[in-house]
Nucleic acid binder design. Structure first.
Lengths: 211, 211
DNA sequence: ACACGTTGGTTCATTGACCGAACCCAGGTG
DNA sequence: CACCTGGGTTCGGTCAATGAACCAACGTGT
């Protein structure tokens, strides 16, 4: 990896982490993966990243055990890149970084993050203030804020406008069948409806509060 | 800044943040600043960063309001770079990133971070489990762990071996007069009553916040 | 007086990463 | 059989990073 030569002399977990995710685009790829992006082409159009760079990043992240490449259909062989636990564990870091960016450089709020179970907006550490717990990543619901463009050009941004849970597979092609939900085997009335389920919770939006 | 052209199209606070701190070396400079490094030469020898790159990073960080360049002596004019509140606010992000690096790629523990008031090790979000509060950055005490090299080559790493609070100015030159900051004799056992300084009390905005 | 060290830079040639565009290939589709 | 889509690889041009050298202001030793 590019940074290894120099960062290796740093005896520091931060430097070690940056060797893995510190290159350009890498954290944005992981962010997109948290948002549900899984396919090469979706990363490509959403990030506007050069193809060669994206291929290199996906390969490196797979080699580091942050993404997992897996085939989701055979007939025309198609692969998707899914976050592993190691990748999902970066959520607090990205949450923290995004919060810092908004507080110090953002003019208006672009996205809300709420606890899907109760609709309460997450605190700075990804906790639900009402439930007094750290919200598991699949239970974080993402919704567009007032500052977000309501009519983006690319289909991935368009698909991300609907309120949705983190990690929920993004479907930009309606013909593609939704393969069984990897997470949330929870029973309470929350069926494997995917996008439709998240949209049905839009009535809770009034409960969100600005920080 | 280098990444602005492409990241600007990303409507995302994470991308915004990465425009500011996403370039190579930048987060390591901020990490060192949190550890108490303040002088050009100390950054240089500790990071092993090319001089031109360090100068560019320090200038950019100063322009972004993350560092503040200030003169600490006149006779030979000498400047130091000190973290602003905006820079200190990156502590949770760096803490989170370092934790991820250690848990997933670190073989042994390199540093401890404790609540200086009670000696309890910090939790994953920078909180003190015993006091049930987010520990203000100047009250975080850093101590070397078992995996850290006990006899490093450069004087900055050597100075960082002593247990010390974050933001406490590092002094690699014993002749340098300490301006208003009580200086810690090396190797000293330390108690909760110690150092009460840390740069005009910045970073205490979250003091006592329950978690 | 004068050489030399320290701090904080700048300049410069070389290297390496990033960039966009073009090309490629396997497997459908009309 | 031409053409489209997904998922890449290849290739020249550009731009930033690198390390070494140079610079300048000030102090210190002799």
């Amino acid at each position: 990896m590019a940074l290894g030569k120099d960062y290796a002399t740093q005896e520091c977990s931060i430097a070690r982490a940056l060797e893995v995710v510190g290159e350009r685009w890498t954290l944005l790829v992981i962010r997109d993966a948290l948002y549900g992006v899984r396919r090469y082409n979706d990363f490509l159009v959403h990030l506007g990243i050069p193809r060669a760079v994206l291929a290199a990043r996906l390969q490196a992240l797979t080699a580091e055990g942050i993404l997992e490449k897996r085939r989701y259909q055979e007939s025309p062989p198609r692969d998707e890149y899914v976050l592993t636990d190691r990748g999902i564990a970066l959520w607090p870091t990205l949450r923290s970084l995004g919060l810092w960016g908004r507080e110090h450089f953002g003019e208006s709020r672009l996205r809300w993050f709420r606890h899907a179970d109760c609709g309460t907006e997450l605190g700075p550490y990804g906790e639900c203030p009402r439930c007094a717990m750290i919200v598991p990543v699949p239970d974080v619901e993402m919704a567009p804020g007032p500052g977000l463009d309501r009519d983006p050009a690319d289909p991935v941004s368009r698909a991300l406008l609907a309120p949705r849970r983190l990690l929920e597979p993004l479907d930009t092609d309606p013909r593609r069948p939704v393969d069984g939900h990897p997470q949330e085997p929870e029973g309470g009335g929350r069926g494997p409806g995917g996008v439709a389920d998240a949209a049905s919770g839009s009535g809770r939006s009034a409960e969100g509060r600005p920080v």
